[in-house]
Design a protein around this nucleic acid. Structure first.
Lengths: 152, 152
DNA sequence: CTAGGGCCTCAACTTAAGTTGAGGTCAAGG
DNA sequence: CCTTGACCTCAACTTAAGTTGAGGCCCTAG
């Protein structure tokens, strides 16, 4: 049994069938079809989906994940080298996000109870400089959203 | 000049007028009207909006912010005590998010190049236990989204 | 008087990541 | 033969946080 059906992939990865269809439309995974038009996946799709899940937890959007995964083989298994390249980048992204949140938390800790929220003196109130770089732009949203959503 | 117009609030806080309208619909801020139906805000709305921005950076959704701000006075300025109560809670949320991302990063660091992505042995591949609480579900998206949007 | 600026409302659109449902196919089992 | 289960497609809906645009009011300056 070298190949898997959608249902099997869904079961093994915990990702819903509709999400797998969706990933396929977005170009994150690919499938072959049986004579009766059912999807069939090579076994390594499991690893690919796993990588996608990790990246999502790290806060990347599917678009970002897609572009990172793009150069990787679809048919062949993801190699150690491929993974090293990709994971290093993601770890760095994560570090940046962590640094951002940490500095915000530190400011927050310093300001608890200080009542200094006056727009000009508080580091929190005018931290925009600090945060505008990473915090803004098109990704935070998608990104953060992902995180928050988890909690519901 | 004890009162502010929307345009002034927008200018001072960096939040667009349409976003201020939106916050009002969501119950995060409140306004009075002039005889010609224009919004007028008490000066402390600036502080309130500042607090909203900080919370958004911390990763909270407007709904969460609204419920935290709910018990706080709309008319009177936010007191030091109010702020301490609210900011302490947010700092703790932030700490939790930071811890989550940090553990993910550590796993990622440990796994770079190990090629162990096999579904059963890798801490990353089956970290679901760890992360499922905070990381999955429908909310990931929305939350992140807020942050992302800011940047545009 | 009329142009412009600032503001108002309301509806529709946007992105992300999926989910949900309707309607249809195919193969195996009773 | 007919039902059931697994799968297929396609369109529409969902949430979040706003943005955009149309159509309209009021006040001030030229």
């Amino acid at each position: 049994m070298a190949e898997l059906t959608v249902g099997e992939v869904a079961k093994r990865t915990g990702v819903s069938i509709s999400a797998l269809h969706f990933y396929e439309r977005r170009g994150l995974i690919r499938s072959e079809r049986t004579s009766s038009n059912h999807r069939v996946y090579p076994r390594n799709v499991i690893r690919r989906v796993t990588v996608i899940q990790i990246a999502q937890r790290a806060g990347l959007s599917l678009a970002e994940i897609a572009s990172a995964l793009d150069p990787l083989p679809n048919d062949r298994a993801i190699s150690v080298g491929d993974w090293a390249r990709v994971s290093t980048r993601w770890r760095d992204d994560l570090s940046a996000r962590i640094a951002l949140l940490t500095s915000l938390r530190d400011d927050l800790t310093g300001c608890i109870g200080c009542g200094c929220l006056s727009v000009d003196e508080c580091p929190l109130a005018n931290a925009d400089d600090k945060l505008s770089k990473l915090g803004s732009g098109p990704h935070l949203l998608g990104h953060t959203a992902g995180q928050r959503r988890d909690q519901k």
